[in-house]
């Protein structure tokens, strides 16, 4: 695939993610859908008590966002490493073909 198409696809992704925050008709608190679903449950079953608590909870939103960032960074970092290796071996092959 040529790089132009990748650029357009990534640009489209950025637009789709940004639009809800920019266009006034899509209003909301932008809280997590998971939390909303749990709120629905506790509303319809006010007496329901979760029977198990998380073993450990990040002490603050900052710590949680750091851990999410670590998760994303590890994933993206490793993918970048594999992409680099593949491109490197591809260009070495091409050099070889030229001999």
């Amino acid at each position: 695939m040529n790089n132009h198409r990748a650029m357009w696809l990534l640009a489209a992704a950025v637009v789709i993610v940004s639009l809800p925050m920019m266009v006034p008709i899509f209003q909301g608190s932008f809280r997590g859908a998971d939390d909303q679903a749990m709120a629905v449950i506790t509303q319809s079953r006010p007496d329901y008590q979760p029977w198990f608590q998380p073993l450990w909870t990040p002490p603050s939103g900052e710590v949680a966002s750091m851990l999410f960032a670590v998760q994303a960074a590890l994933g993206a970092g490793f993918i970048g490493y594999v992409i680099g290796r593949r491109h490197g071996s591809a260009s070495r092959r091409d050099d070889h073909d030229g001999d």
Binding site: G28, G32, F68, Q71, A72, L74, A76, V82
Partner: peptide, 24 residues
């Protein structure tokens, strides 16, 4: 294989805003 795992690791950490006014 590791890259496939890394991709899941990456994407499931990204909570994005959506048209319903919530994030997922």
């Amino acid at each position: 294989l590791a890259a496939a795992g890394a991709f899941t690791f990456l994407l499931s950490a990204l909570k994005m805003p959506s048209v319903t006014g919530s994030c997922s």
